[in-house]
Computed example of a mutant assay.
Amino acid sequence: MTDQILTLKEVAEYLKLAEKTAYKLAAEGKLPGFKVGGSWRFKAVDIERWIEEQKKRAE
Rank of each mutant, 00 (worst) to 15 (best):
Y14G: 10
K30D: 14
S39G: 06
M1F: 12
E13P: 01
V36T: 08
L17G: 02
E59H: 03
I5W: 08
G33K: 00
E59W: 02
V45W: 11
G37S: 09
I47W: 13
K30H: 13
T21V: 05
G29R: 05
K56Q: 07
G33L: 07
E28Y: 11
A58E: 09
E28R: 09
K24A: 13
A18S: 04
K9W: 03
A18F: 00
S39C: 09
R41Y: 05
M1Q: 11
V11A: 00
E19V: 03
E52F: 06
K35F: 03
A26I: 04
E10A: 08
A44M: 14
L8A: 08
A22Q: 02
A12D: 00
K30I: 06
Y23K: 10
T2I: 14
A18M: 01
E53K: 15
A44P: 07
K24I: 05
E13W: 07
K35I: 03
L6N: 05
A58T: 07
E28C: 12
G33H: 02
T7Y: 03
R49A: 14
L8E: 05
A44Y: 13
T7W: 03
M1G: 11
Y14A: 13
V45P: 02
A58P: 00
V45S: 15
L6H: 09
K43F: 13
